[in-house]
Simulated scan of single mutants.
Amino acid sequence: MSKVDKLIKNVYKELECSEYIIDHSNTVYKRTKDITKYYNNVDKDLIKAGAKLHDVGRTVTNGIKHAYIGADLLRDLDVDEKICKITERHIGAGISAKEAKDLGLPDRKYIPKTLEEKIVAHADNLVHGVKFVDIDFVIKKWTKKGMSQESIDRLIKLDNELMNR
C-alpha cells in the first residue's frame, strides 16, 4: 500500500467517515482523471489525497462549513497543509472574501489557487453524489439553488481554464 493510500485509510478510520463520504470522494478522484489528462505538471498523489479527503468535514456538518472544518480536522491529524488547503478551498469554484463573510465563515482564503486545488474543486463540481455530470447540469443546479451570478461565472471560468475549452 502506498504512503498516500495509508494516509487516506488512516484518516477515514480516525474520523469515522461514512460509506457515502468515501464513495463520493472515490468518484471525485475518478473525475479528476478527466481533468489531469490535460496536464503533465500536476502532483497526482496530492490530487488523489485531496480528492479522497476533501469532504471529511461532512463527518461534522453537511453545510458549507464542512470545507474549513474538514481542513481543521486534517490539520489536527498533522496532514500535509497542501491537502488541508485543497479541502478548505474545494467549495464550488471558490468563495470570495465577501461571500465568506456573508456566509459567516472564518476569515480565510477560499478561492483555489494551485492547479491541484482547482482540479479537485472542479472535479467535485462535476460529480453529483456518485455520478458524473457535465457543466450544464452544474449551472442549472446552481441557478435553481439561487447561487450568485458571480459564483456561476467563476464556475464557468474554472471549467474553461481546466477543461481545455
Score class of each variant (00 low, 15 high):
Met1Gly: 13
Ser2Val: 08
Lys3Ser: 13
Val4Thr: 15
Val4Cys: 12
Leu7Arg: 08
Ile8Tyr: 09
Lys9Val: 06
Asn10Glu: 14
Val11Asp: 01
Cys17Met: 13
Cys17Glu: 08
Ser18His: 09
Tyr20Trp: 13
Ile21Arg: 03
Ile21Tyr: 06
Ile21Val: 14
Ile21Cys: 09
His24Gln: 13
His24Glu: 12
Ser25Asn: 11
Ser25Tyr: 09
Ser25Cys: 15
Thr27Gln: 13
Asp34Leu: 10
Ile35Pro: 01
Thr36Asp: 04
Lys37Phe: 06
Tyr38His: 15
Tyr38Lys: 12
Tyr38Cys: 12
Tyr39Ser: 10
Tyr39Asn: 06
Asn40Phe: 12
Asn40Gln: 10
Asn40Glu: 13
Asn40Thr: 14
Asn41Phe: 02
Asn41Val: 07
Val42Pro: 04
Lys44Pro: 03
Leu46Trp: 09
Lys48Ile: 09
Lys48Val: 07
Lys48Ala: 10
Ala49Ser: 09
Gly50Pro: 11
Gly50Asn: 11
Ala51Met: 09
Lys52Pro: 05
His54Leu: 09
Gly57Glu: 07
Arg58Ala: 04
Thr61Gln: 02
Gly63Lys: 14
His66Lys: 12
Ala67Lys: 10
Tyr68Val: 14
Tyr68Thr: 02
Ile69Pro: 03
Ala71Arg: 11
Leu73Val: 04
Leu73Asp: 11
Leu74Cys: 07
Leu74Glu: 10
Arg75Ser: 11
Asp76Thr: 06
Leu77Thr: 02
Asp78Asn: 15
Val79Arg: 02
Glu81Gly: 01
Ile83His: 05
Ile83Arg: 04
Cys84Thr: 08
Lys85Cys: 00
Lys85Val: 02
Ile86His: 08
Glu88Ser: 07
Arg89Gly: 04
Ile91Ala: 10
Ala93Thr: 05
Ile95Cys: 10
Ser96Lys: 01
Ala97Trp: 08
Lys98Asp: 14
Lys101Thr: 11
Leu103Ser: 08
Leu105Gly: 06
Leu105Asn: 09
Pro106Gln: 08
Pro106Thr: 10
Asp107Tyr: 08
Arg108Ala: 01
Lys109Trp: 02
Tyr110Gly: 08
Tyr110Leu: 10
Ile111Gly: 00
Pro112Met: 13
Thr114Cys: 04
Leu115Gly: 05
Glu116Gly: 07
Glu117Pro: 06
Ile119Glu: 10
Val120Ser: 07
Val120Leu: 11
Ala121Gln: 12
Asp124Tyr: 12
Asp124Ala: 12
Asn125Phe: 04
Asn125Lys: 08
His128Cys: 09
His128Pro: 01
His128Asp: 09
Gly129Asn: 12
Val130Pro: 02
Phe132Tyr: 14
Asp136Thr: 00
Val138Pro: 01
Ile139His: 00
Lys140Arg: 14
Lys141Pro: 00
Trp142Cys: 00
Thr143Asp: 03
Lys144Gly: 00
Lys145Ala: 15
Gly146Tyr: 12
Gly146Asn: 07
Gln149Val: 12
Asp153Ile: 03
Arg154Tyr: 06
Arg154Ser: 09
Ile156His: 02
Lys157Trp: 06
Leu158Arg: 05
Leu162Tyr: 08
Met163Lys: 12
Arg165Ile: 15
